[in-house]
């Protein structure tokens, strides 16, 4: 018999409270936290009588999942499971954000969760929890009636204008939620690098090594080492910061401009390594495929990371 628990948002968190009630079929608490079962996932499993599983290294079929525990600071992952209407517990205090923000709602998602936010649920709370995809609100009425030409043209124009307007709205939201915050953060780093003289230190020490083909091959190989690459991945934050530092060195003349191309691949050998099981489940992969796919991608990068740098180096001949 499985018990229900009530999970509330933690300090600075958002959403919830969620009632997690595993059943005989849905009896897995899946931890997608970059390898291993997080203690929070284990605690939820212990309190409910469910089984905790590591969703990073082993694939778990979606129809067995009672809840997912993630640690996502606001990139793609925090929306993936809410989109599938799987109850999602985020250890980071992240609100609705990322490209899938619209799927992150209070009835399916709770964030900033600590161990003390998990409590046994009352009997009345567990009654009547339904987690189905919301029914689309608009029901088509009057379809099939013939419309005159003017009405049809009018509707057609309206639909196109509506699409353009929605595109504009999506774009502005993207700029405000993602691009501007990153520009602010990176501007701060650049200010500190330029103003403190750190840039000169980097130019004298690291750039000579990083600004050569062997140096870049070594960097790509290090980024691709299977236990390092998933850590470097999330949100491409590290790749972006390193990209800015390399750009600064190009501007200073410490690195040749033509080397920009191989550098782009050298600093990005780890791209998406943190996201493999989630990406595969978006592609509706079977659990066995995920189990084989995670090591396959991770090891492949050790080979293809340096190869990418070499190809880019060849293509950089004649650039600038």
């Amino acid at each position: 018999m499985h018990k229900a628990v009530r999970i509330s948002k933690g300090r600075g968190g958002w959403g919830g409270p969620l009632i997690i009630q595993p059943t005989d079929e849905k009896n897995m608490i899946v931890s997608v936290t970059g390898g291993g079962v997080d203690p929070i996932a284990q605690k939820i499993a212990d309190m409910t009588g469910a089984v905790a599983g590591d969703g990073f290294t082993t694939g778990i079929p979606e129809n067995r999942i009672a809840a997912v525990v993630i640690d996502c600071g606001g990139t793609a992952r925090c929306g993936v499971y809410p989109r599938k209407r799987i109850p999602t517990v985020n250890l980071m205090a992240t609100g609705p954000s990322g490209p899938l923000a619209k799927y992150i709602t209070e009835d399916i998602y709770v964030s900033g969760v600590n161990a003390e936010d998990i409590a046994p649920a009352d009997a009345q709370e567990t009654a009547g929890i339904v987690r189905e995809a919301p029914v689309p609100a608009e029901a088509r009425s009057g379809a099939g009636k013939s419309q005159d030409a003017v009405t049809r043209i009018g509707k057609g124009v309206g639909a196109v204008v509506g699409k353009f307007f929605q595109a504009g709205r999506d774009t502005i939201e993207m700029v405000i939620k993602h691009i501007l915050p990153f520009m602010a953060f990176v501007s701060m780093i650049i200010g500190i690098i330029q103003g403190s003289g750190l840039g000169d230190v980097i130019a004298r020490t690291i750039s000579p090594a990083a600004g050569s083909l062997p140096g870049m091959i070594v960097i790509s190989f290090i980024c691709a080492i299977p236990f390092i690459s998933p850590i470097l991945g999330p949100g491409a934050v590290i790749a972006q910061v390193v990209g800015v530092i390399v750009g600064e060195q190009i501007a200073k003349g410490a690195i040749r401009p033509s080397l920009a191309l191989p550098a782009l691949f050298a600093i990005d050998a780890q791209v998406g390594c943190d996201f493999i099981p989630v990406g595969l489940s978006l592609g509706e992969a079977e659990p066995d495929t995920i189990s084989a796919g995670v090591p396959a991608v991770l090891f492949s990068r050790m080979i293809t990371g340096p190869i990418a740098v070499i190809i880019a180096y060849i293509f950089s001949i004649g650039l600038y």
């Binding site: 990153f182 949100g235 390193v242 800015v244 750009g247 782009l264």
Partner: peptide, 10 residues
């Protein structure tokens, strides 16, 4: 658009 600075930085 959320990860532009890998390219834009350089």
């Amino acid at each position: 658009a959320g990860e532009l600075f890998v390219y834009l930085g350089i």
